[in-house]
Design a protein around this nucleic acid. Structure first.
Lengths: 329, 329
DNA sequence: TTGAAAGCGCTAACAC
DNA sequence: GTGTTAGCGCTTTCAA
């Protein structure tokens, strides 16, 4: 039924070791025999069995990718970066959604290790102690992509979220706004609570402004949540820094619904710079997070670990910037 | 170093066959020995090696997923449906991007088959003869998700794209429009050329309207392309059916830029009903494609093939509908 | 209910 | 340059 290396060996009158050599591009084969073997391979339609190879060599050339939700644009973009570099280094990817569920994350790690992946890229909102411990037990390297481990012991690729938030808020303050709101996704996400919120705080402090709790909105990270929150509150900040583009757009539409103008009455800055940002009117000013690059660099970092290359710095910080469009100058 | 089934056998004073039985839930094991083995497994921290298992059993419990571009919302949503059902049936997924490149698609099929996947879900814009042949040679089942094979020989899950387009266009005509444009993505995509365009044609014919080539716009499938096309043309249709939400929103903004109103002067219907549709003003009326369900059902179909269950119909058509919002009544 | 033994298809010494 | 020979860690008859 299936053609094995042994069939090829017989067909070409060589040993299976020789066939293995030509399949793996080992130079220690006489050109003539190489040709003979290649012909036999073509004639028989032989295709190496990667599972057998994996068992014998203890390498599967596949890496695990654990992602909160591939249907979210944020993660899909990261995943694309990861996959491209994986392909470049001839790895395949086993992709699973964790839904931010710690149990599921741990279970996925387990099954991926069981499948003998050569490494793992993990995306998560928060590295809990249990998860950290599980990662520590892993027999293969693990790299975090767009994910912060507060203890900083796991290799990772990120941007300076806090600095980015601070810049955005400072920009708003610099434009003359004294009442600047922070519209955030859930604070059980490390990036929201420990970085964006802190960046917001720092910017206020730097400007000598008091933190006004009433201007901090912790919402579900969705357009509707922001829209409704704006309708529900009677606070009227003139500057808004949102923790995501979706939130920002919700705010903009809330403002417009209230008969106010953006950026005339309220300036809004988003976070992520999805393609959405260009597809709303007024166009959204937003902090650019290089998601594709974060994915790509994290995969590259993982390949270095997997082939024992030297690592300069296991915690990479990529640059960010603010793309200024119409919703805020 | 790594704990094997053999280590567990010794630890529990049984044979490896017995360990294998308890690991695989085989009922032919005395409860007492089962307990003994389980304890040994815990004590040693044994984790079955899926690669060895795959080699011995010829089943890997992983399926391949070939997708044009995971960073596109359309496909990311499909992928989520696929993955959820795969997880439900305890399969893992090897995910790769093909960029709609025939060579890459064929190469990916090859490497996935080499990795001994138990089945494959394929998404593509067009099943070319070479691709069809490669699929035919596959030793494992292949299911198309959101992808049409014009020869209809490959199992697939879709909606009635043509019927959906026809309904959308008829709706516009029914609203009194005599000049209805079709703003489409590239016609090298089967769905665009053979279904949406045909549905558009049928709707016109049904209404006794002449097809006006000048009202058919074949564009890159992007917001910018639609926006620019609208700026560039001097045609002023009062109804527009777009082949995607992005194109539809581009059209809407083009219309607004021209000082006209939506839906007052121009009515627009999109296709796909992404979350974008609710996040623009006016909100977009759009044909609902149940992407998640298409993914889920295609994976379910694949599991049936993989376990030799009976298949009622290998070509599934899921229902669609039009979600009416503000851009068209 | 349990064990012994033969592979699954390949890689990787090691010898020649 | 090429062949021989052990495994890799597991499943799966077949016997007992």
């Amino acid at each position: 039924m299936t053609v094995t290396i042994y069939d090829v060996a017989r067909e070409a009158n060589v040993s299976m070791a020789t066939v293995s050599r030509v399949v793996n591009g080992n130079p220690n084969v006489k050109p003539a025999t190489r040709k003979k073997v290649k012909e036999a391979i073509d004639r028989l339609g032989y295709r190496p069995n990667a599972v057998a190879r994996g068992l014998a060599s203890k390498k599967t050339t596949t890496v695990g990718v654990i992602i909160p939700d591939i249907s979210k644009g944020f993660y899909a973009e990261l995943a694309r970066g990861i996959e491209d570099i994986a392909t470049m280094y001839e790895y395949n990817i086993i992709l699973s959604n964790s839904d931010q569920n710690e149990d599921k994350e741990i279970r996925l790690l387990e099954t991926m290790l069981g499948k003998q992946v050569d490494g793992i890229v993990l995306m998560s909102d928060a590295i809990t102690p249990a998860l950290r411990e599980e990662i520590g037990r892993s027999s293969v390297p693990v790299v975090l992509a767009g994910t912060v481990d507060l203890e900083g012991r796991i290799p990772s690729v990120n941007i300076d979220y806090k600095g980015a938030a601070q810049e955005a808020v400072s920009r708003l303050i610099g434009n003359g706004h004294r009442e600047v709101a922070f519209v955030s996704g859930p604070f059980d996400t490390v990036i929201n609570r420990d970085f964006l919120l802190e960046g917001y705080r720092d910017a206020l402090r730097e400007a000598g402004l008091e933190l006004d709790e009433g201007l901090v909105f912790e919402l579900e990270d969705s357009y509707d949540a922001a829209l409704e929150a704006w309708h529900a509150t009677d606070r009227r900040p003139t500057g808004v820094f949102a923790g995501s583009d979706e939130l920002a757009i919700g705010v903009i539409h809330g403002v417009l619904d209230a008969g106010l103008a953006v950026p005339g009455d309220v300036e809004v800055i988003g976070f992520e710079n999805t393609k959405l940002a260009r597809m709303v009117r007024p166009r959204l000013t937003s902090v650019v997070i290089p998601l594709y690059d974060i994915g790509a660099v994290s995969m590259r970092l993982l390949t270095k670990f997997m082939s024992n290359e030297e690592i300069e710095d296991p915690n990479v910080i990529l640059p960010h910037r603010i793309e200024v469009r119409e919703s805020a100058k």
